[in-house]
C-alpha cells in the first residue's frame, strides 16, 4: 500500500546573473517515486545531484526562491503547504546527515525532546537513548561533544520519538566504517519492520542494495529507473536503464569500470534524454525529447531503448 507518492515533481531555482539575465536552474525534473509502508526505497545518485532537495520538497522546507511543480500525495490526499506544515515532524520525519543539523548551543537531550509530539517527552527521550545505547550523560551534552556514531544515533532518536509513519533519511551513512554502516542500515530496517515507510537517500549503491526493497536511480535531477533490489544480480541483465547498468558495472566487485563523462549541470541540461551524452546506446531519437517514465517488467524506466 503506497503511503507517499511523488508525481512529476520539478524543482527549479531562479537566479540572476549580472543582475539582468534570469536563469532557471532546474535541479529536479519530472521525478516520480512511491513509498510503501513497511518497505525501504533507496534513492541512489551521485553526490551533488540534488537528491537532498527531494527530501526538502516533500517536507516543504525548500528555500523561498524555489519553484515547485508536480503533485505529492500523502495517504492518497494531496500534500498542500498547509498539510506539510501540519505533518512534518509528526507523520513525516527527516533524519539528516550530520551533527551540523543539531543546534550547537542546545543540549541534545532537549533537542530530541522537542520531537516528541505525544506523551511525556523526557521519558520518551530516555527510552530511545537507552535503546540506541546512548549513555545517561549524553542527554546533557552539546552537539560538539558527540562522537560521529553518537551524533548519528541522536539524529535517529529524533525520528524514533516522533512516531512518524514516513522516515526520510538523507545520506545517513557518510562514514566509511562498515560496522557503523551496517548498524545504521539495520536501524532503518527496524523502522520498516515496524510498519514505517523509509526513503533512504544515498550515493552509496552498495549499502542501498544491502537493505532496500526497491532502488530508485537518480540522475541529473530525475529518476531514470525504479527497480526491485532482486534485479541487481550477475552482469545486470535484469537492469533496465543504461545508467543503472553502468553504475552496477562500476562497482568494485563487478567490472570496476567507471562511467566516462560527468553529470550535466542544472543550468545546461541536454534537450532530450538527460543521459544521452554519456550513453553507449544513444541514437538520434534520444536527442529529440526527454523520454517518459514507463513501466517495464515490474519496474519503471525512462529510456526508449530499454527492454
Amino acid at each position: 500500500m503506497s503511503i507517499l507518492e511523488v508525481e512529476n515533481l520539478s524543482v527549479s531555482f531562479k537566479q540572476y546573473t549580472d543582475g539582468f539575465k534570469e536563469i532557471n536552474h532546474k535541479v529536479i525534473s519530472s521525478l516520480n517515486v512511491t513509498l510503501e509502508a513497511g518497505k525501504i526505497l533507496a534513492v541512489v545518485g551521485a553526490s551533488g545531484s540534488g537528491k537532498s532537495l527531494l527530501a526538502h520538497a516533500i517536507l516543504g522546507i525548500l528555500p523561498s526562491n524555489a519553484n515547485v511543480s508536480g503533485i505529492i500525495k500523502y495517504e492518497g490526499k494531496e500534500l498542500t503547504p498547509i498539510r506539510q506544515t501540519a505533518l512534518r515532524g509528526k507523520e513525516i520525519a527527516l533524519v539528516p546527515q550530520s551533527v551540523n543539523f543539531l543546534d550547537p548551543l542546545m543540549r541534545v537531550g532537549n533537542q530530541v525532546r522537542t520531537s516528541v509530539k505525544n506523551g511525556d517527552a523526557v521519558s520518551a527521550q530516555r527510552k530511545v537513548f537507552e535503546r540506541y545505547r546512548l549513555g545517561k550523560e549524553v542527554e546533557d551534552m552539546y552537539p560538539f561533544q558527540l562522537s560521529g556514531g553518537m551524533a548519528r544515533r541522536t539524529l535517529l532518536s529524533t525520528a524514533m520519538v516522533s512516531d512518524a509513519k514516513v522516515i526520510i533519511a538523507d545520506e545517513p551513512t557518510p562514514g566509511l566504517d562498515p560496522v557503523v554502516i551496517k548498524e545504521a542500515l539495520d536501524n532503518f530496517r527496524e523502522f520498516a519492520d515496524n510498519g514505517c515507510a523509509v526513503m533512504l537517500i544515498t550515493h552509496d549503491i552498495e549499502s542501498a542494495l544491502q537493505i532496500a526493497d526497491k532502488i530508485a536511480v537518480f540522475y541529473a535531477g530525475t529518476t531514470v529507473e525504479i527497480a526491485p533490489v532482486e534485479d541487481f544480480v550477475g552482469n545486470g541483465e535484469a537492469i533496465r536503464h543504461p545508467y543503472t547498468k553502468a553504475l552496477w558495472r562500476a562497482l568494485p566487485q563487478n567490472e570496476f569500470r567507471p562511467i566516462p563523462g560527468s553529470q550535466p549541470h542544472p543550468s545546461s541540461l541536454p534537450p532530450g534524454c538527460l543521459f544521452e551524452p554519456r550513453c553507449e546506446m544513444a541514437t538520434a531519437e534520444c536527442r529529440q525529447a526527454p523520454p517518459k517514465m514507463r513501466e517495464l517488467r515490474d519496474g519503471m524506466v525512462r529510456c526508449i531503448h530499454a527492454t
Binding site: 543582475g19 539582468f20 516543504g60 526562491n65 524555489a66 515547485v68 508536480g70 503547504p81
Partner: peptide, 14 residues
C-alpha cells in the same frame, strides 16, 4: 504546492 516568492528583483535596463 509551494508558491513562488520570487520576482523581488525588478528588471531594469542596466
Amino acid at each position: 504546492m509551494i508558491p513562488s516568492l520570487k520576482n523581488a528583483n525588478k528588471r531594469s535596463p542596466l
